[in-house]
């Protein structure tokens, strides 16, 4: 019979916390600066996503309003409004969402890096 292998259980290292939030948790000037930069970055990617949404989808009623002749075009035998609004819009929304998700996670990763490097400084 083999004994189960011994596992060493340790807590998180005490010298270097993963992310130190003391500066930010308190209402300090430094905290405000950090928060401001993260919020700006996150708001910027959100607004860029929504701008693409508005240009790509929100403009369609106006487009067909200005050029009603487009209704008669029928690529693949499906009239253009049905193709755009009934089918293509959904993959578009999903891909836009995925693009946003990656950007937002990247922003958070660099924010965590910023805090960590700040902790390492003397």
């Amino acid at each position: 019979m083999t004994e189960p292998q011994r596992v060493r259980v340790t807590g998180p290292p005490r010298r270097r916390p993963a992310v130190r939030r003391v500066d930010v948790d308190e209402d300090t000037r430094l905290g405000e600066v950090y928060l401001g930069s993260l919020m700006r970055a996150q708001l910027s990617i959100a607004l860029r996503t929504l701008a693409v949404l508005f240009l790509g989808v929100g403009s369609l009623p106006l487009l067909f309003w200005l050029a009603p002749g487009l209704v008669r075009t029928a690529p693949f035998g499906i009239p253009l409004p049905w193709l755009l609004l009934g089918v293509l819009v959904y993959p578009f929304l999903f891909l836009l969402g995925r693009w946003y998700l990656r950007g937002a996670e990247r922003n958070e990763a660099s924010y965590a890096d910023l805090l960590r490097s700040d902790d390492e400084a003397p």
Binding site: P12, R21, V24, L38, M39
Partner: peptide
């Protein structure tokens, strides 16, 4: 400000330490 920090800060992940 304290509350907004919590809303926008990613939760500390324990994975790297573990």
């Amino acid at each position: 400000t304290r509350l907004l920090v919590r809303l926008h800060t990613p939760e500390p992940t324990l994975e790297p330490a573990v």
